Amino acid sequence: MNTEQLAQLTWLKSSYSGDEGGECVEVAPDATAIHVRDSKEHDGPQLAFPRSVWSGFVASLGRNRI
């Protein structure tokens, strides 16, 4: 994905994230991946996960509660 395409992503922050500047992430879905970035560093590094990997990660969150 090139810089122009990355700039067009619509970023979403969790409703659990506050405005206090804690450890929050934002996600932006596209046709093939889920992009993740630090909510305080919009121009910083980003990760991209295939949708199937992200779905597995999210599903495992509910199963592995401590």
Score class of each variant (00 low, 15 high):
residue 1 M to F: 10
residue 1 M to P: 14
residue 1 M to Y: 09
residue 1 M to E: 15
residue 1 M to R: 08
residue 2 N to R: 07
residue 3 T to S: 13
residue 3 T to G: 05
residue 3 T to Q: 14
residue 3 T to L: 12
residue 3 T to N: 14
residue 5 Q to E: 13
residue 5 Q to T: 08
residue 5 Q to F: 09
residue 6 L to F: 04
residue 7 A to R: 14
residue 7 A to P: 01
residue 7 A to K: 14
residue 8 Q to V: 07
residue 8 Q to N: 14
residue 8 Q to D: 12
residue 9 L to G: 10
residue 11 W to L: 01
residue 11 W to D: 00
residue 11 W to A: 01
residue 11 W to C: 01
residue 12 L to P: 01
residue 13 K to N: 01
residue 14 S to H: 08
residue 15 S to N: 07
residue 16 Y to R: 14
residue 17 S to P: 09
residue 17 S to W: 04
residue 18 G to S: 00
residue 19 D to R: 05
residue 22 G to N: 13
residue 22 G to C: 09
residue 23 E to A: 13
residue 23 E to S: 07
residue 24 C to W: 03
residue 24 C to E: 02
residue 25 V to K: 01
residue 25 V to C: 02
residue 26 E to D: 06
residue 27 V to I: 15
residue 27 V to F: 13
residue 27 V to A: 10
residue 28 A to R: 07
residue 28 A to V: 08
residue 28 A to C: 08
residue 28 A to I: 08
residue 30 D to K: 03
residue 31 A to I: 12
residue 31 A to F: 02
residue 33 A to K: 13
residue 33 A to M: 12
residue 33 A to L: 05
residue 34 I to V: 15
residue 35 H to L: 09
residue 35 H to M: 06
residue 35 H to A: 15
residue 36 V to A: 02
residue 36 V to L: 12
residue 37 R to T: 02
residue 38 D to I: 03
residue 39 S to C: 02
residue 39 S to Y: 05
residue 40 K to N: 07
residue 40 K to Q: 08
residue 41 E to Y: 01
residue 41 E to T: 01
residue 42 H to N: 08
residue 45 P to S: 10
residue 46 Q to D: 03
residue 47 L to Y: 14
residue 48 A to W: 07
residue 49 F to D: 00
residue 50 P to V: 09
residue 52 S to E: 13
residue 53 V to M: 06
residue 53 V to I: 06
residue 54 W to N: 01
residue 55 S to I: 12
residue 56 G to P: 09
residue 56 G to V: 05
residue 56 G to L: 03
residue 56 G to C: 06
residue 57 F to Q: 02
residue 57 F to W: 04
residue 58 V to N: 00
residue 58 V to M: 00
residue 59 A to I: 11
residue 62 G to A: 09
residue 63 R to T: 13
residue 63 R to F: 11
residue 64 N to E: 15
residue 64 N to Y: 15
residue 64 N to P: 04
residue 64 N to W: 15
residue 64 N to Q: 15
residue 65 R to V: 15
residue 66 I to Y: 12
